[in-house]
Computed example of a mutant assay.
Amino acid sequence: MLEILKPSEYPKLLRLLGDDYIGAHQIVHLLENVFTGKIPEVKIMVDKWPEFNVVILEQVSLQPHILRKSNYTFYTKTNKQKQLEDVLLSHDIIDPDKEGLLIGLQEIDFDVIYKAMDQRNIGYIKPANPTKCFTIKSQDLIVFPVSPGLKLKPIPHDAVDSMLSAWDYADEVTPNYFYYLIDNYKTVALYDVDDSLIGYMMQTHLGTVGMLRILPDKRGKGYSKIILSNLVKMVFEDGADVVTSSIDPKNEISINLHLKTGFKDSLTQEGWLDFYPFKHE
């Protein structure tokens, strides 16, 4: 029997998930955002309580003016994929009328979801390449100082249009998503001595740091290390115990950048899947 948790049970869930931070880090951060009011409303489902095997968090309050798709964040305990399959086959979790994004999945969960959606016959899942999860603790952070004449500032609202045009996943969000991140999370924009933008990076509502971009004519000068390390420093100063980053395994440049800054490979593969309802074809 699938259970929907009451908000009064969220703190206990957060404590229990903390025992497997790497596997559950995105749900952990979403819950922390609920407590701080950055995300006012979520729906949390577990296969049983409190000895759960599967947790699915649906983001309610960021729809539809910020996130174009329904967002579901998954956590499955190690070797409990059968329980995940049972939940997906037995309950109407994914909205069959809307496109959805299934987030925070371990690679081992992918085949389970393909199979369950095929049997439900309500839509199809688009394959995705898993990302590698890298983590860092404050004592391991190497902060690269800002060069003389350069300036670090929060990302301004007037940068949103160019950010959307440069992001591969812009069709999943509205411009309001970037305004929401800028207004609620840590962001860093680096400016040159002539006040021209060099690049930027931001913290997301899932707790990760990402979306790093250096403008083409500014690359190859070490600016990425300044932006990444100073953003992570700000996230730690805001109270984080661990900072995570999800990176394409083929992106060796980004992986090496994170390693030089103090991140460590968590040896975890995770990712997300897109759901498309048949009736919208």
Score class of each variant (00 low, 15 high):
residue 3 E to D: 07
residue 12 K to P: 00
residue 12 K to E: 09
residue 13 L to C: 03
residue 14 L to E: 02
residue 16 L to E: 03
residue 17 L to V: 02
residue 18 G to K: 12
residue 18 G to I: 02
residue 19 D to R: 14
residue 20 D to H: 01
residue 23 G to K: 01
residue 23 G to H: 06
residue 26 Q to H: 05
residue 28 V to A: 01
residue 32 E to S: 15
residue 37 G to D: 01
residue 37 G to S: 07
residue 40 P to C: 05
residue 41 E to S: 13
residue 42 V to S: 03
residue 44 I to P: 02
residue 47 D to Y: 12
residue 50 P to L: 08
residue 57 L to K: 01
residue 57 L to M: 11
residue 59 Q to D: 10
residue 59 Q to S: 15
residue 69 K to S: 10
residue 70 S to H: 11
residue 73 T to G: 06
residue 73 T to A: 04
residue 78 T to E: 12
residue 79 N to W: 06
residue 79 N to H: 11
residue 82 K to L: 08
residue 82 K to Y: 09
residue 89 L to Y: 08
residue 90 S to Q: 09
residue 92 D to P: 11
residue 94 I to W: 06
residue 95 D to E: 03
residue 104 G to C: 08
residue 104 G to L: 05
residue 106 Q to K: 14
residue 106 Q to H: 15
residue 108 I to F: 07
residue 109 D to Y: 03
residue 110 F to P: 03
residue 111 D to G: 13
residue 113 I to W: 04
residue 115 K to N: 14
residue 119 Q to P: 04
residue 119 Q to H: 10
residue 120 R to Q: 12
residue 121 N to G: 09
residue 125 I to R: 11
residue 125 I to S: 07
residue 129 N to F: 07
residue 130 P to F: 07
residue 131 T to P: 00
residue 132 K to D: 09
residue 133 C to R: 13
residue 136 I to R: 04
residue 138 S to M: 07
residue 139 Q to R: 14
residue 140 D to H: 15
residue 142 I to H: 13
residue 142 I to A: 04
residue 145 P to L: 08
residue 146 V to Y: 00
residue 148 P to C: 08
residue 148 P to K: 10
residue 150 L to G: 02
residue 151 K to Y: 01
residue 152 L to K: 01
residue 156 P to F: 00
residue 156 P to E: 10
residue 158 D to Y: 07
residue 160 V to W: 00
residue 160 V to T: 06
residue 160 V to P: 04
residue 161 D to E: 13
residue 165 S to D: 12
residue 171 D to N: 13
residue 174 T to S: 14
residue 177 Y to H: 13
residue 177 Y to M: 10
residue 184 N to F: 02
residue 188 V to Y: 12
residue 189 A to S: 12
residue 189 A to M: 15
residue 191 Y to E: 05
residue 193 V to M: 15
residue 195 D to Q: 09
residue 202 M to G: 13
residue 204 T to K: 08
residue 205 H to W: 15
residue 205 H to N: 15
residue 206 L to N: 05
residue 207 G to T: 02
residue 208 T to Q: 12
residue 210 G to V: 10
residue 213 R to T: 12
residue 219 R to L: 03
residue 227 I to R: 04
residue 227 I to Y: 09
residue 228 L to W: 03
residue 230 N to K: 05
residue 235 V to L: 06
residue 239 G to N: 01
residue 240 A to Y: 12
residue 242 V to P: 03
residue 242 V to E: 13
residue 245 S to H: 00
residue 250 K to S: 14
residue 252 E to P: 02
residue 252 E to R: 14
residue 260 K to M: 11
residue 263 F to L: 04
residue 266 S to T: 15
residue 267 L to W: 05
residue 270 E to P: 10
residue 273 L to V: 01
residue 277 P to A: 03
residue 280 H to S: 10
